Amino acid sequence: MMVTVFLLAVSLMLIGYTLTVVEAMRHSAAWGLATLVPPLAIVFAIWRTRQQPVATALLILPLVFILFAMPFFSLS
């Protein structure tokens, strides 16, 4: 069960990352290349939340889930 939840979160995060890179390429080539580095993709996603709310949510929410909720799965 834990592995399934983790893989679902990672899959959603990859979809959000892909959508963010596509939006960055549409914005400018420099941002498109910069978002190939994942921390800069998070910065771009937060900066452009109004233009791409779904991509930002798919990038940030699974990351928050993995960072804060997954350690509790190992306790049971």
Rank of each mutant, 00 (worst) to 15 (best):
A30M: 12
R26H: 12
T4L: 11
A29I: 02
A9M: 14
I46L: 14
G16M: 11
S74T: 12
Q52V: 10
F44K: 01
F6V: 11
M25F: 12
V37K: 00
L75I: 14
A24R: 04
Y17W: 12
Q52F: 05
P38R: 07
S74A: 15
I42M: 07
P71V: 08
F73C: 11
F44H: 05
G32H: 10
T35K: 03
I66Q: 09
P53S: 02
V64L: 15
Q51T: 10
M1H: 13
S76M: 13
R50M: 07
M25H: 11
P39Y: 10
T35L: 02
A34V: 12
M13K: 13
L75E: 03
M1L: 07
Q51Y: 06
M2Y: 08
T56M: 15
F65E: 03
V43P: 04
T49K: 14
I42H: 09
V10R: 03
P62L: 03
A45S: 15
V10S: 07
P71F: 05
V10K: 08
A55M: 06
M2V: 10
M1N: 05
L8F: 13
T49A: 12
L61E: 01
F65R: 05
A57H: 01
V37G: 06
P62T: 07
M1D: 05
F68I: 11
M25A: 02
A41L: 10
A24V: 03
A55L: 07
L33D: 04
E23D: 14
M70T: 13
V43T: 12
L63P: 06
V22Y: 00
R48D: 05
F44M: 05
A9E: 06
G16D: 05
A45Q: 05
T18Y: 14
V43K: 14
P71S: 06
W47P: 01
I42R: 00
H27G: 00
L33W: 12
L19H: 04
P53V: 02
G32P: 06
L7I: 12
V54E: 02
L61R: 00
L8D: 00
F44W: 13
Q51R: 14
V5T: 10
A41Q: 04
L12H: 05
A57P: 01
L33R: 13
A29P: 00
M13T: 04
R48M: 10
V21G: 02
I60P: 01
R26L: 10
V64G: 08
L14I: 11
A29V: 07
V3C: 00
G32W: 11
L36P: 01
L59C: 04
L40G: 05
T49I: 15
L33I: 09
A69K: 03
A45V: 07
R26D: 11
L14R: 04
